[in-house]
Simulated scan of single mutants.
Amino acid sequence: MAFAIGDQVFVARSVLKLDANDISPFYRTVVRARKNRSVQVDMPGGGWSHSISTSKLIRNFGVLIIRIGDFNEDGLLDPLAKSILHYCRMLLPGDSVRLIELRTEGELATFWDTHHGMCRQVVIVGHGAPSGFLFGTTNVTPQRLVQIFDAPNPTKKEFISLGCETGYMQFGKIFSQARCVSHFIGPFHSVHGCVASLFTQTYFNERLIACRSERVAFKHARSNLKGAASFRLWENGNLTAGPA
């Protein structure tokens, strides 16, 4: 992503060596100078920062958490979705995070058609299988989900599925080929809610605060779960990381 002098950006406070005792781990600032792939930005109280890589800059945020219900959400799905919601609210500024709770594919299509522009990352929380997600009592296939998410022709986004076994080829290969998907992450086996929450939080920490690429952030998040669960990373129909 290209950045120009005068652009407003977010930078992790740790990158700028700023006090971490702030409500947000990010500092909103303005690009003041650029040389090749490095920039300098405004610092609090005046002056410019040291040279930092453009890979450390974030233009905007947006995380959408989609909780797909099956009439039995209280014990797992609601706590899991809300654990990610509360973490992201501490992580990201302002109204950059939203949780939507639904039970039908029609609700998903209506919401997505209007609000797809608010997010860069999408977390799907629900009961999954290689054949799809359970919406209420109806299984919705990955092919149908691709139709729903591709319909408004949105910008490419990272999708993280916490539905069991959606990292299988039957789901991951198909879904990752959607026009709107840049990367797709899904569990290779059944996954406990505590593990799914930890993986997602670690991924966002690596992706946003540490400014890692999707693949590196995935590998770091997955390495914390040895012996607990396996996740896979798919890109354009290809398995790029995770167990074969």
Results as ranks from 00 to 15, higher is better:
residue 89 R to C: 09
residue 90 M to W: 12
residue 91 L to I: 07
residue 91 L to T: 07
residue 92 L to M: 15
residue 92 L to G: 07
residue 93 P to N: 14
residue 93 P to R: 13
residue 94 G to N: 15
residue 95 D to G: 10
residue 95 D to P: 00
residue 95 D to H: 14
residue 96 S to P: 04
residue 97 V to H: 06
residue 97 V to E: 01
residue 98 R to W: 05
residue 98 R to H: 13
residue 99 L to I: 13
residue 99 L to A: 05
residue 103 R to Y: 09
residue 105 E to G: 05
residue 105 E to P: 11
residue 105 E to T: 13
residue 106 G to K: 14
residue 107 E to L: 04
residue 107 E to A: 07
residue 107 E to T: 03
residue 109 A to H: 06
residue 109 A to K: 11
residue 111 F to D: 12
residue 112 W to C: 07
residue 114 T to W: 02
residue 115 H to W: 11
residue 115 H to Y: 13
residue 115 H to R: 09
residue 118 M to S: 13
residue 118 M to V: 06
residue 124 I to T: 01
residue 124 I to W: 10
residue 125 V to W: 00
residue 125 V to F: 04
residue 126 G to T: 04
residue 126 G to R: 11
residue 127 H to Q: 13
residue 129 A to I: 00
residue 129 A to Q: 10
residue 130 P to N: 05
residue 130 P to Y: 03
residue 130 P to A: 04
residue 130 P to F: 07
residue 130 P to E: 01
residue 131 S to A: 15
residue 132 G to Y: 03
residue 132 G to K: 04
residue 133 F to M: 12
residue 133 F to V: 03
residue 133 F to A: 05
residue 134 L to K: 12
residue 135 F to M: 08
residue 135 F to G: 11
residue 135 F to W: 01
residue 137 T to Q: 14
residue 137 T to A: 14
residue 137 T to G: 03
residue 138 T to I: 14
residue 138 T to V: 15
residue 139 N to W: 04
residue 139 N to Q: 13
residue 140 V to N: 08
residue 140 V to R: 03
residue 142 P to W: 01
residue 142 P to V: 10
residue 142 P to E: 11
residue 143 Q to Y: 09
residue 144 R to A: 10
residue 144 R to L: 11
residue 145 L to N: 05
residue 146 V to Y: 00
residue 146 V to E: 01
residue 147 Q to I: 01
residue 147 Q to D: 12
residue 148 I to G: 09
residue 148 I to F: 07
residue 148 I to N: 08
residue 149 F to C: 02
residue 152 P to V: 03
residue 152 P to E: 09
residue 152 P to K: 11
residue 154 P to K: 10
residue 154 P to N: 09
residue 156 K to S: 12
residue 156 K to N: 05
residue 160 I to V: 13
residue 160 I to W: 02
residue 160 I to Y: 01
residue 161 S to Q: 07
residue 162 L to S: 01
residue 162 L to C: 11
residue 163 G to Q: 08
residue 164 C to Y: 02
residue 165 E to C: 13
residue 168 Y to W: 11
residue 170 Q to P: 00
residue 170 Q to A: 15
residue 171 F to M: 06
residue 171 F to I: 06
residue 172 G to R: 00
residue 173 K to Y: 08
residue 173 K to G: 00
residue 175 F to T: 12
residue 175 F to E: 08
residue 175 F to Q: 01
residue 176 S to C: 05
residue 177 Q to N: 10
residue 178 A to C: 03
residue 178 A to F: 01
residue 179 R to Q: 13
residue 179 R to A: 14
residue 181 V to F: 04
residue 181 V to Y: 02
residue 181 V to T: 12
